[in-house]
Simulated scan of single mutants.
Amino acid sequence: MVNNSIDEINNDIKSAFFENAHSPFVILDGDMNFVGVNHAGVKTLGINKENFIGKNLLDIFPYLEGTKRYDAYKKVIETGVPIGFDELLFKGANVEFKFMVRAFKIGEYLGVSTLDVTSLVETIAKLKSTQTSLEEVNQNLQRKNQELKDFSYVAAHDLRAPLTNLKSLLEMVLTADPGSTEIYPVVEKMQVVTKVMCDKIRALNQVISIKSNFSEYTEEMVFADVIGKIKLSHSQEIIEGRTIIKEDFSSCPSIEYNPVQLESILQNLMSNALKYRHHNRKLSIRISTKKVNEKTILTFKDNGLGFDQNLSNKIFLLFKRMHTHVEGLGIGLYIMNSIVSENGGKIEVSSKKNKGTEFRIQL
Rank of each mutant, 00 (worst) to 15 (best):
M1W: 00
N4W: 06
I6T: 14
D7A: 14
K14D: 14
S15V: 05
F18H: 09
F18Q: 10
E19W: 10
N20L: 07
H22K: 15
P24T: 01
I27N: 07
I27C: 10
N33G: 03
F34I: 15
V35L: 12
G36E: 15
G36Q: 15
N38G: 03
H39F: 00
K43Q: 14
K49I: 10
I53H: 09
I60Q: 07
P62I: 09
E65D: 12
E65L: 15
K68H: 06
R69C: 07
R69I: 06
Y70I: 05
K75D: 14
V76C: 06
I77P: 05
E78Q: 14
I83F: 03
F85K: 02
E87H: 13
L88R: 04
K91T: 10
F104H: 11
V112M: 11
S113R: 01
T114E: 04
T114P: 02
L115F: 13
T118L: 08
L120S: 12
E122L: 14
A125H: 14
Q131C: 02
S133D: 15
Q142E: 13
K144A: 06
N145L: 13
E147W: 15
L148C: 04
K149I: 13
K149A: 08
P162L: 01
T164E: 15
L166Y: 11
S168T: 12
E171K: 13
V173Q: 08
L174K: 10
D177K: 04
T181L: 12
I183T: 11
Y184R: 04
Y184M: 07
K189A: 05
K189C: 07
T194Q: 03
K195L: 09
R202M: 07
R202V: 08
I210A: 05
N213F: 06
N213I: 05
F214R: 09
S215P: 04
Y217H: 15
E219V: 12
A224F: 05
A224S: 15
I227E: 00
I227H: 03
K231H: 06
H234P: 03
I238E: 05
E240D: 15
T243D: 04
T243C: 14
E247I: 01
D248F: 04
S254T: 09
S254C: 05
I255E: 00
N268I: 00
L269K: 05
S271H: 13
N272F: 01
A273H: 02
R277V: 03
H278D: 03
H279K: 12
S284I: 07
S284Y: 04
I285F: 08
I287F: 06
S288D: 02
K291G: 02
T296N: 09
T296K: 09
I297C: 05
K301S: 15
K301R: 10
D302R: 07
N303Q: 03
G306N: 01
D308T: 06
F316V: 03
L317R: 13
F319L: 06
F319N: 12
L329E: 13
I331K: 11
I335H: 02
I335M: 12
E342Y: 05
N343Q: 09
G344V: 08
N354Q: 13
E358S: 13
L363K: 09
L363G: 06
